[in-house]
Design a protein around this nucleic acid. Structure first.
Length: 581
RNA sequence: GACCCCGUAGCUCAGCAGGAUAGAGCGCAGGAUUCCUAAUCCUGAGGCCAUGAGUUCGAAUCUCAUCGGGGUCACCA
């Protein structure tokens, strides 16, 4: 149950009954939120202010009328009109205790919403070139996409997690050729390795794959015949490598979509271009070179262009390269048309900062292929700078290799990696300090939150030890007398828990999983704060051997904290340990 | 030259689809441990929300311009 959603509805209905002429537009802007200053009450609504202008009335007049109507609401103990026209509510105990009962009743589903209404959404993330292991630059997008997907699923969307394999380009060709050379070398031929070839370490997996499948039978056959065979082995090996890396972060995609399957005579790019032509979205024309910076090898030629400017892009985009093959974008149009035809009306793409220039053309493509029926949100993840003790940190000067995803996970662990990468807006650049992330102090939000969970578990362990006669089964906790939780500190903690469903809804609508991480930090802080109060005032301790009923009620509260932490950490893909080592 | 992102406390960042006196952590100054994990908590100092206009009852939030930082800019992916 979401008390905020409940009151949005009540306030809306009341407003409508008082002023039947209010428009839906006004109701859509009406919010009920926790006031910044708790002294203002439990809930606050802007209803009167958003309705004032359309109704041509004074906001305080509307607010007063609304407040009057709520005097009969049994869940409301006081209503006040404040400031320019805020309506501040103070809620009666029972509705807060109902929140606790709801947490116990719903368990893992407390906070789940149906705003997605079961609609399908495609979340595409990572989509790195299969030319090597995942490096640290991919990690942020991988974690962000995965967490966003989990959040959307928790919000009632039918989510498909998708990875687009860019396996059709020249880089793959190079990789296959390099691998073939390494294969010949490994089988005894003397080979001169060209300077731009991929390193032996990288091509090793593909080479071994080819060796084990073909033995030395490829040596005698011409390159043109053999390269496609090697390429298949290489791609398979690379994909396994990537999947294994992602698995280290507990990331698993539902669909791996190969770009190669779009290419070829009569395949999807062909048919998509035919379709685009039939829709008049393509023409032959010339492009102006970019102002201020004409590329060295600019060649002014007539080419096949997609009318991206009709769909909000800055310039029309080429579909065919000068050598006659398709551009990356042409394939991407076909790919996104494929997504649409598979039934996705909502699409989210997670891209790295270096692709920010690609966003408007991607949105244009989706708008075009769906005739405006599908929406596309592109989330850009900004760069991550690796740090160690406050100093920029670069690995391996010798080989020029990048820090890999596997390195990071091995160094700091899954939980810290995932939490820290989520504990920041995706569109802000961030520093990732190995030393800090590994530290187990309150500087580190991962451990701060996990510690809160561990503390909860510890309290239960102690309760069993100190009060062996107390029945702390779930059934007993559910039936606890929540009315005994009457101190301000308890009320504060319950209010924090009550915000969980609202947090999920808002984070989901905004496609901003970092809000979940920040919320969990707040819950942990409220809980740690309450815990410490037991130091000063023994009456506020969770375990009071003289008061079994109060102890049971407090344990039920603490159990509710645990549930919310577990639900939130679950979305983030971070574990909730029962004790910290 | 154009487009995208960012600019909030000394540092790192939040600020909830415009809302009341702008928040947290670190750092700094001070305090709490016979008692459920001090891996924690409490108190204090510290801000012209880059700058300037505009929109309105109200702007850190929306619009425009300027400055500063990052990213990108046919035929790479």
């Amino acid at each position: 149950m979401d008390v905020f959603a409940i009151f949005v509805e009540r306030v809306s209905n009341t407003l409508k009954s008082l002023y039947p002429e209010v428009s839906d537009d006004v109701l859509a802007r009406l919010v009920v939120e926790p006031p910044r200053d708790p002294a203002h009450g439990d809930l606050s609504s802007n209803a009167a202010m958003v309705a004032a202008k359309p109704l041509g009335k004074n906001p305080r007049e509307i607010a007063t009328a609304l407040a009057e109507a709520f005097k009969n609401d049994p869940d409301v103990t006081s209503v006040e009109v404040a400031g320019p026209g805020f309506i501040n509510f103070r809620l009666a105990g029972p509705i807060w205790f109902a929140v606790l009962r709801s947490i116990w009743a719903q368990g893992a589903d407390f906070g789940r919403t149906d705003i997605g209404k079961g609609e399908r959404v495609n979340v595409e993330y990572v989509s790195a070139n299969p030319t090597g292991p995942m490096h640290v630059g991919h990690t942020r997008g991988a974690v962000f996409g995965d967490t966003l997907a989990a959040l959307m699923a928790y919000s009632g969307y039918d989510v498909t997690r998708e990875y687009y394999i860019n396996d059709a380009g020249s880089q793959i060709e190079t990789l296959a050729r390099s691998t073939l050379l390494r294969y010949r070398e490994a089988l005894g031929e003397t080979i001169e390795i060209p300077p731009r070839a991929i390193s032996g370490r990288l091509s090793g997996a593909g080479r071994r794959g080819a060796e084990s499948e073909f033995g030395d039978s490829l040596l005698s056959r011409p390159d043109a015949e053999v390269i496609p065979l090697v390429k298949d082995r290489v791609l398979a090996a690379m994909l396994e490598l990537i999947k294994a890396d992602l698995a280290k972060l507990n990331i698993h995609h539902d669909v791996f979509f190969s770009e190669r399957t779009l290419h070829g005579q009569g395949k999807e790019i062909d048919s998509t271009l035919d379709w685009l032509r039939s829709e008049g979205m393509v023409y032959q024309g010339r492009l102006e070179p970019p102002k201020g910076k004409t590329p060295e090898d600019w060649e002014d030629r007539e080419q096949t262009l997609f009318r991206a400017t009709d769909y909000g892009d800055d310039v029309d985009r080429p579909l065919v390269k000068s050598d006659g093959s398709y551009t990356y974008f042409a394939a991407d149009i076909a790919y996104h048309r494929d997504k649409y035809l598979r039934g996705f009306k909502h699409m989210i793409n997670v891209l790295g900062a270096d692709h920010s220039g690609y966003v408007s053309r991607l949105k244009a493509a989706v708008k075009a292929v769906s005739h405006g029926q599908a929406d596309m949100d592109v989330k850009i993840c900004q760069l991550v700078r690796l740090m160690k003790n406050g100093e920029p940190f670069k690995m391996s000067k010798r080989s020029g290799d990048l820090v890999t995803l596997a390195d990071v996970v091995e160094e700091v662990g899954v939980d810290a990696t995932r939490f820290m990468l989520t504990y920041r807006r995706n569109d802000a650049a961030m520093d990732f300090d190995f030393a800090l992330v590994k530290e187990q102090t309150r500087d580190n939000p991962v451990f701060y939150v996990q510690y809160a969970h561990a503390r909860v578990c510890s309290i239960f362990r102690n309760a069993e030890k100190e009060m062996p006669g107390l029945d702390t089964s779930d059934a007993a906790l559910r039936g606890a007398e929540f009315e005994l939780l009457s101190s301000p500190a308890e009320a504060e903690l319950i209010r924090a828990l009550a915000q969980w469903p609202r947090t999920v809804t808002q984070a989901s609508l905004a496609h901003e999983p970092h809000r979940v991480a920040f919320y969990l930090y707040e819950v942990a802080a409220a809980f740690h704060g309450f815990w410490a109060k037991g130091k000063e005032d023994i009456g506020l301790r969770f375990i009071n051997t003289d008061h079994p009923k109060l102890t049971l009620a407090r344990l039920a509260l603490v159990g509710a904290v645990r549930q919310v932490l577990v639900n939130g950490l679950g979305i983030l893909g971070v574990s909730a340990p029962s004790e910290l080592s």
